[in-house]
Design a protein around this nucleic acid. Structure first.
Length: 337
DNA sequence: AACGGACTCAACCGCATATTG
DNA sequence: CCAATATGCGGTTGAGTCCGT
């Protein structure tokens, strides 16, 4: 049986739909000409195609036609991406740009859904994706932003250039939720949020301060080599990229856990130049002067400085944790972070 | 060495929203 | 305006790895 199909210019979606349905009718694009294919019981064959005028790129060769017509070959692949798939996706995006993920997946010859391609690109393959452990500053920022925005992972990720929402979400679940679980309380409970505010975050600040002046090597993966290795089961450098803090004076006010005197919201403003060349500072009564130099990083200015109120959650120091619980949390954090 | 539980994180799923025809 | 489709987001899963016994 022979099926003739004509497909309008560039309409790969319609094209494939008719191929799958074994459609026989002819569809004409009067403006730009048509692509006509001839189908058989198994597979289809391109018999006429004005490629220049039609702009149909999905059919790059007769073999493509065959593969698209095969039920078996049309199966969507799932699971881990192979290096070959990665390179196909990267090369395609380098040439054609990103977006239009469904048609991209087909045009590139990937047997993946558009969503899968998008996710792979955004979370792993795109340039400037940072790999490796979250720095102390990043952890602190995540805790702080989550306290005000909740599970708005993509929004939080926007404030940590190179980090993905998926990565931050994973951090939250594996580290923070785990902590709550160990303390036998709900991660959203006031008790736990207070513990984060008055114990965890101050401790992070202390650790950031403690790293001041130490010679910490930080190998920023400019070429994303580590990320590629990690994606295929190999581990990248386990070094935690901790930038050097140059100045920190007021941090100590957070160091005593429940004895913290929260800064007022009114004198709060922030400038997280976290990805600096670069500094990271909190113009806040309690942390003012905390500046972290991290020259290998890309410069980044906190984009929502107007609305951002760092540590505004400290406005009410009514932590209900017992000394025992606080001690326990601190012990956990000492080994966990 | 073998086993099993815990952990990590890439990837998938379902849903909501945006865009397109 | 509406329906279909694409995109984006947050929640969840599960394969691979680590680590203690």
């Amino acid at each position: 049986m022979v099926k003739d199909i004509a497909v309008a210019r560039g309409d790969a979606e319609v094209f494939m739909k008719f191929v799958r349905l074994g459609y026989k009718e002819k569809i004409w694009d009067h403006d730009t000409g048509v692509v006509i294919i001839q189908g058989e019981d198994v597979g289809v064959r391109l018999i006429k195609c004005n490629m220049e005028r039609s702009g149909v790129q999905v059919m790059r060769s007769l073999s493509d036609c065959d593969s698209y017509g095969s039920e078996e070959e049309m199966a969507i692949k799932k699971g881990p991406w192979t290096e070959e798939e990665d390179s196909v996706l990267i090369n395609y995006i380098n040439v054609h740009g990103e977006g239009h993920w469904n048609s991209l997946a087909r045009s590139a010859g990937l047997k993946r859904t558009g969503k899968s391609c998008r996710l792979r690109w955004l979370n792993y393959l795109r340039p400037n994706v940072r790999r490796g452990n979250l720095t102390l500053q990043e952890q602190l920022l995540i805790l702080d932003l989550h306290s005000r925005w909740g599970n708005r992972w993509s929004r939080i990720a926007e404030q940590l250039p190179g980090r993905t929402d998926n990565e931050i979400k994973n951090y939250w679940r594996t580290r923070v939720v785990k902590q709550a679980r160990q303390l036998k309380c709900d991660v959203n409970s006031k008790q736990f949020r207070d513990a984060v505010r008055f114990v965890w975050m101050p401790r992070l600040m202390e650790r950031i301060k403690a790293s001041s002046g130490t010679d910490i090597s930080y190998s920023h993966d400019q070429n994303n080599n580590a990320s590629k290795a990690q994606g295929h089961g190999e581990c990248s450098s386990g070094n935690n990229p901790i930038p050097t803090m140059l100045k920190s004076e007021a941090v100590s006010s957070y160091s005593s856990g429940v004895d913290v005197q929260p800064p007022s919201v009114s004198d709060t403003s922030a400038s997280y130049n976290l990805m600096g060349g670069g500094s990271w500072s909190l113009e806040d009564s309690a942390v003012k002067g905390c500046t972290i130099s991290s020259s290998p990083w890309q410069h980044w200015d906190y984009p929502e400085i107007q609305e951002f109120e760092p540590f505004s959650a400290f406005s009410d120091a009514d932590l209900l944790w017992t000394d025992e619980n606080i001690w326990f949390l601190q012990q956990q954090l000492a080994t966990d972070i």
